[in-house]
Design a protein around this nucleic acid. Structure first.
Lengths: 117, 117
DNA sequence: CTAAAGGTTAGAGCATGCTCTAAGTCAAGC
DNA sequence: GCTTGACTTAGAGCATGCTCTAACCTTTAG
């Protein structure tokens, strides 16, 4: 598929997609005869996973690191797995903190509502 | 208290504290005879609340809006309450999404572990 | 008196993550 | 052949949120 369709499927603008390729998040995107990018459904999966990592707070530099390990093949299997585990643990912690924040916000709102001037 | 102690209590650097004052998050910080800032324990509470809003993803511009409402007194009570409610609702949604992300990560990690090459 | 420690200001600089622009290429339809 | 539209590139510009610098002022201890 071309960049427009890929953009629609991944939710990233074509500008952003080219940018991600430039910084090493997407490698080996194939080209058609006239030099236009042709994305595959595997690319869709990968960019959706990138979006997941991004949405859970992983910086692009670390995602690029993961991408490089992925490119390097099976030898980096454990390495990638540990990277994901560390990220998951950080996410768990963050979720706990955010639960606390949510409770505190609820309490503040309840206070506002019971103290209307 | 002086800026160094306040910095220690709030976890923000003195640079950041002056910056927050400049952009309107902190208003009416008092000064001593030689022009140095003197922070009160109310200021500690307020900055801790700012940190909470920040940690739950509220941009500084919106926190500044909340700060301005707060400065304006009781007339903005409802307004502030609604702002917090909207933020809480957004936070709830985000927590749900992050729970899903966490599950997906766990699944990916489980896959990695069951498919070691 | 002097030096050190801690504060002040305005404003420059930086990291991240886009977002857009300019100039050009290519393929399809009239 | 020419226009239109979607693509290409390198690189500039922007928004957010700090982070640091330079030059200067006070207070305190020796």
């Amino acid at each position: 598929m071309n960049i427009a369709k890929f953009s629609a499927l991944t939710g990233l603008s074509s500008h952003t997609l080219r940018y991600y390729e430039k910084i090493g998040l997407l490698a080996n995107i194939s080209r058609d005869a006239s030099g236009h990018r042709r994305y595959s459904s595997k690319d869709v999966e990968w960019v959706r996973f990138i979006n997941r990592l991004k949405d859970t707070g992983m910086p692009l530099a670390e995602i690029r690191h993961y991408a490089e390990l992925r490119e390097a093949g099976d030898a980096t299997f454990d390495n990638r797995c540990h990277l994901l585990e560390r990220h998951r643990d950080a996410l768990k912690l963050r979720l706990q903190r955010e639960q606390e924040h949510l409770q505190a916000l609820d309490a503040k709102i309840a206070y506002y509502q019971s103290h209307k001037p």
